[in-house]
Design a protein around this nucleic acid. Structure first.
Lengths: 188, 188
DNA sequence: TAATAAAGACTGACTAGACAGGCAACAACA
DNA sequence: TGTTGTTGCCTGTCTAGTCAGTCTTTATTA
């Protein structure tokens, strides 16, 4: 049997890229990422054809992981408010526990190396959350607003809240509660 | 007497940089910016010592212009809600009228070439708006939240709203109203 | 008014360095 | 020994910033 192409090294590169991007930005040399991953300079390109391909994979991976963390342990029965709050808490927890991934994701998100296809795929992983939001706003003042707009507003409030939580961890809980209450007031 | 160094060319470079950044991103070559400004390659550096210096100047200039547009024609007497809405409308109008500047500012804002000093100065130009927000939230449920946090929430809602307005201009007015109402609900 | 000089704004070819990706050689396993 | 993953050196390309020199305008003089 041929020695299998190591998925571990693939993951190592993705993780190394996260760390390096946080520290040095997207213009960081591939050589640095390879070194951080404990892999030879040229090996980088046996795992990812180009730097851009790596970026697109990393974007999707982090986004998918985040979506999965957000949707963990849902109780299907709960009231809309409770349901949304559960998701909110998962979201904020993930952000506090994974500041690097969040930071890297933010950088990747504004890069023009991320293709529309990748963005669309990333958006798709968030679809269940959008659906949940639909129920939460169903009877409130935003019921006639465009679906995507409400989602964008929620997302922007969440991002701002997460920024403050990571920047001032001592008051993280406070920000989380205030942020969610603000969101709920907006929806109802 | 020496011929005066042309402020027009300085402005031309700043304007050219805005256009080029929107089209090509921050990694666009200085040569391209110089060409777009109708200035020789090397002249770029007689107006701005380095590319980073240009970026910092541009960031501040756009931010200051935006703040000035937002604060235009204020009537000091009005009710908090009216006062805030006036500012909101100015803000949205500026965004719709200057999509390129907004886009360039967004790119510059996430760049790590913008120094903390520059960010602080940019923040300062928005101080009057923050003050106004203080009055608007004074009697609402967010009166005990940290000042900067409320400002960040307002800003994030405004950004999301402006995104949708520029992306779907036909419904711009609708988004503007819905966005402001959402903000006000959040504050009260 | 015309000729000359001085100043300094402006130019663009050039350089030094950085980096993405290629590739020829190598190592490990069957 | 053949096959395949892995290596790290190499190269072609790109670009920020430099600098020796040109050009334009103003000041001075006759």
């Amino acid at each position: 049997m041929p020695r299998p192409r190591s998925d571990e090294k693939r993951s190592a590169i993705l993780e190394a890229a996260t760390r390096i991007i946080v520290m040095q930005g997207l213009s960081a040399p591939t050589a640095g990422i390879a070194k951080e991953a404990g892999v030879a300079n040229g090996s980088f390109f046996t795992y990812f054809e180009t730097k851009t391909v790596l970026f697109n994979h990393l974007y999707l991976e982090i986004k998918a992981e985040m979506a999965s963390a957000i949707l963990k342990n849902r109780s299907a029965s709960a009231e809309p408010r409770e349901e949304l709050f559960h998701v909110w808490r998962n979201w904020m927890n993930w952000a506090v526990s994974n500041p690097q991934k969040r930071k890297a994701l933010a950088q990747l998100g504004v890069s023009d190396e991320i293709t529309p296809d990748t963005r669309a795929a990333g958006h798709k992983t968030m679809a269940p959350i959008a659906e949940l939001l639909e129920r939460a706003r169903a009877h409130g003042p935003m019921q006639k607003a465009r679906k995507g707009f409400v989602g964008a507003l929620m997302n922007s409030i969440a991002e701002a809240t997460m920024d403050f939580m990571t920047q001032d961890p001592a008051n993280a809980k406070k920000y989380s509660k205030e942020g969610f209450d603000a969101l709920w007031r907006m929806l109802n």
